[in-house]
Design a protein around this nucleic acid. Structure first.
Lengths: 196, 196, 196, 196
DNA sequence: GGCTAATCGAGACGGTACGTCACGTCTTACT
DNA sequence: AGTAAGACGTGACGTACCGTCTCGATTAGCC
């Protein structure tokens, strides 16, 4: 009776899985997060409602799985060796992501839900997309181990991301944001604190 | 047939209005924004559902009306004449508001909704609670007309609010935030830009 | 605040009620009891599912309400003064009802359900359609107060109804049943017992 | 490669078959016919759902196979040579079967289903459990070939079974039934008709 | 004091999505 | 070929809230 290796029963349909992830992306753009329903996703994916529920509990979970990979890619910047340029590129990528990318729309929707739904907050807490990307850039600029310096990485992250984050989420025009100035401001502050 | 002045018919019940606003506040704390329903609000207020719909279209509208005044009060700081102290007090008030106050919970819920619901975004755009309070403080520190200086007020606002805003909304622990350091950082940057 | 007389709220829609009762009758004939669903009834009636559930809990309840009146009418026979004729007419009506009438099909379906669903059994127990009609006929033949005679009415009822009831429910051909013989048998037995 | 006689491949598991039949009996008593499901039977039997479906189409089929043998046994009475006693014993057995025996509960459930499900009606028509047992008793009393007498066996069967059958299926209390009186009534009628 | 008109409560209405359940079929690996 | 396991599409279940509607009752200004 015992089964030692290999899976038992019919294997999960990879086709169904990707169809759902694609459907949730489409639905987000077409009808928006609020109007998105489990039923609608299933129908759009050509998959039964039961199958959706078998693998995901909420639309937030599906959206998270569907957008996490994209988010990481869109927030990665190649280091050039020049701190100001790297930081500027990152801030620009951040604004693009938050304000213009589909994956960013998903992220904003989830972060919005997280403000009043603890389950979604927990979900987002499993992967700090913004914080991770910012830390990577900051450490690339300062050298690894920068967190041991005068500014803890967590706080530095907030200084770097905060202004752009607030700008976009409060509904301000992303075109009126100057990534290079934010990058320079951040660098200036790092150096100022270093002098103490 | 036309009536030029004065309303005809039974006047709106002020009692019903305040009961609804109170109910929406209570419900937010008790069940949270997501689980809040028009039906629940009506029942909690001891008012018919029709009456709620007669005066508000969505729970967001009610919540906005119920929390706007509180928000303004909680974000106002008395000027002391000492820039660092004023800014520190403001940042502290901001964190308290966002992370600990009921009115702040309402604001975060609405801002969250706004990320995926244009109607709520429009609603929030009618009153820039955070921006206005920040501008008041900044102008108090620099003197009015500071916006004409080297840093536009809008951008300065983002620099001041951004880090704390991101910190709280991304689910980080508000206790680990140092308002005074953020205030000093902000002041340093203002002066640095002034030297150009 | 107190309301002394008259109904409160929107009154129940008589149109919806009759549409549902009619729909359940139609569905029984068209798709049969087993394939009948609350959803199907609602759609057929042009009524929302919620409205059906508001007034009835199960399809059995609806069917019972829809067929009870018909059943009573179909089982009523006019007394002629001649016992054998009255009893024969009744048995004939009983066979017609059970084997050929829509209301009888409803009754058989409900009685069938009642064999394995206590809720339906309770429902049927609220109105003994067959027993009542038989008692009326028997008392018409013997004179009221016949129950005080040698044969309790309950038992007499079983003697009169039983054979035809078994015949139809066990799937035998109703055409091969001779109502007059059953009526004569019943009368003979009544007299035989009277002689003891 | 070809195999000429005997079956090819793994033979049907007798263990699985009996486990299913036992499970369906258990389930009938524990949860009742209505709440009995193919899934539940399979799990209870420790057998895969597919295996159940391979050998039976519906729960009615399984139940029929599981209870038919028991039914026959419970309705068989040993002849004593005394007509009244034999008939009385039979009626008593019939009432016990219908009202108190697990196999009888299965029979009632199936007969109930048959009232609104033609497939079940066909199934039951393959074996006239009640009719056969009654015919055996009647022929034992009258001598074989009794059907050629004044009362066709089919009709006699209905006279003998009908009252008790109606009594139980219409939900009346089986304890208030007098088997001996029904047996005597039946005998009286047989003799009365014989005199014509 | 009667009339008109808008509000209020209650609650029924048609909708639509929810999350669950059982159905009967299928696709694996194993025996 | 039979079996256990379990995913699949299907479709009804009963519930919840949506926003609208129809009632009777209430409360004001106006004639």
């Amino acid at each position: 009776m015992e089964r030692r290796h290999g899976q038992v029963g019919r294997p999960r349909s990879e086709q169904a899985r990707t169809a759902v992830l694609r459907a949730v992306d489409d639905q987000l753009l077409e009808v928006g997060y609020a109007a998105m329903t489990m039923k609608g996703i299933a129908e759009r994916a050509g998959v039964s409602r039961q199958t959706v529920y078998r693998w995901w509990s909420t639309k937030a979970e599906i959206l998270f799985e569907a957008s996490a990979v994209d988010a990481e890619q869109e927030l990665a910047v190649e280091p050039t060796g020049e701190p100001v340029d790297d930081l500027t590129a990152y801030v620009a990528a951040l604004v693009d992501f938050l304000a213009r990318s589909p994956a960013g729309a998903a992220y904003r929707a989830l972060l919005g839900e997280a403000q009043h739904d603890p389950a979604v907050a927990d979900l987002l807490a499993t992967k700090d997309v913004l914080g991770d990307s910012a830390r990577t850039v900051i450490e690339g600029v300062l050298g690894a181990g920068a967190g041991a310096g005068p500014v803890p990485v967590g706080e530095a992250t907030a200084l770097l991301i905060g202004p752009a984050f607030f700008w976009v989420l409060s509904g301000r025009d992303p075109a009126r944001l100057a990534p290079r100035e934010l990058a320079e401001t951040f660098l200036r502050e790092l150096r100022a604190r270093g002098r103490h």
